[in-house]
Nucleic acid binder design. Structure first.
Lengths: 223, 223
DNA sequence: CCAGTCCAAATTGTATGCAATTTGCTCAGA
DNA sequence: TCTGAGCAAATTGCATACAATTTGGACTGG
């Protein structure tokens, strides 16, 4: 999310609603294609329609929902081609951040990245899927931050959120945890050694495999 | 702009206001730091505050304006560091699109890109600054489109818009037109020959020079 | 003259009401 | 049974009204 929006501790109702609705979409309470009724959401949250409308407009710009004039809003439902595009875009953004991170991470950031990575090795070995998943988000966020470029980092994160609804449970694929961790290893090594091109390549490889995993998962579910 | 928003021919008042205000920012009528008074804008456009507020929220998400809860909205005013970040981000996005374009442009798209480029050579030679500037936008847009990835293309375009207010008149720098054209030549050659890495490098080089030109320009104006 | 407090005007945030469009249902007619 | 016209209910878009917060300045005390 472009955080030129209110980040303070004085959020407006619209802002709180926007994050609440976004949460609902991300955790699956609201699924792709589902209709977002203004009056319903308003009553559900105990507010009037006005802040709901503003929140919806905000979410529409982030791509999480679709609004068509006079036809209402729905949770974004993408065609397989659009989902593919989102994954490709995310891979490119992650790779770009990794490349920049390899060039401009501070020594402290590099050490912290390595520490994170090593703690994830243990989680993967123990098969702690949920903890690994959380740590994974933090790992990637650390790389975004290491790029030292707010616009790119924000966009990378917004893409990650946006593909979220389409890749639930991906980590439950057999052996995905360990392979993910091996791929991280290549990324971390490249970043730590300042190998920009290598970091880019390793990250593209990693995220592309995640995409493959998603497609396999989608295929299973469709069957 | 993430065009999950209404693109139809049935735009809502809020949408029309959003583009109107955005135009004002892009063409300099509204300058960075300027306050955006809701009541004022409403009266000025002959509407109530409600659609104005929705438009502002939309623009805030695009990064063109800043909103702080209960403090109103202003045209985004960036520090030199933030402007630098925007230029770097734009360079990375353009380069990424160029790389993807080198890999996936169709023969027709390649021919059209070359045609565009050649017509720009004439404009540069004739010193037609304004026509060149328009053609330049079209040239870069063609490359975004050639990447065949809607999210990346949209983000690249939104970044281009976002830096717009900070780089007015850049092309009037001495000799900028001809050099820009030479850099385009390298980009086009790499794309046409399918040289992904080369296209990336050439585009980064090109856009970075634009940034340098901007900084030189800003330095002159500050003096 | 300056700092600080307090109040009024201005401005933003939210609620409510009404107009306009869409949606879905009923019901005639083939 | 199917199709389509037409009306009623539901839903969105916009305007207006009201509440809450911020802003600017007058005034007091030092």
């Amino acid at each position: 999310m472009q955080t030129r929006m209110s980040t303070d501790t004085n959020p407006t109702l619209s802002d709180k609603l926007a994050t609440a609705i976004a949460d609902g979409i991300l955790n699956g309470t609201l699924s792709p294609g589902e209709r977002l009724d203004e009056a319903g959401l308003a009553e559900q949250h105990g507010v009037s329609r006005t802040p709901v409308r503003e929140a919806l407009r905000q979410l529409a710009m982030s791509g999480l929902i679709d609004m068509r004039p006079r036809k209402g809003a729905i949770v974004s439902k993408a065609t397989p081609e659009e989902i593919e595009s989102l994954f490709v875009a995310m891979a490119e953004m992650e790779a770009t951040c990794a490349r920049l991170a390899a060039m401009s991470m501070t020594p402290i950031e590099r050490r912290r990245l390595q520490a994170r990575h090593e703690s994830m090795i243990a989680l993967a070995a123990a098969g702690e899927t949920e903890a690994y998943s959380d740590a994974n988000v933090a790992f990637h966020s650390a790389i975004y931050a290491g790029a030292h470029n707010a616009p790119l980092a924000e966009y990378a994160m917004s893409l990650r959120r946006r593909v979220g609804p389409f890749r639930r449970a991906q980590f439950r694929m057999d052996g995905r945890l360990l392979r993910s961790n091996q791929e991280h290893d290549a990324v971390v090594r490249a970043i730590l050694s300042g190998d920009a091109a290598g970091a880019h390549a390793a990250m593209i490889h990693h995220v592309s495999l995640v995409e493959d995993a998603f497609e396999a998962f989608a295929a299973i579910n469709a069957a």
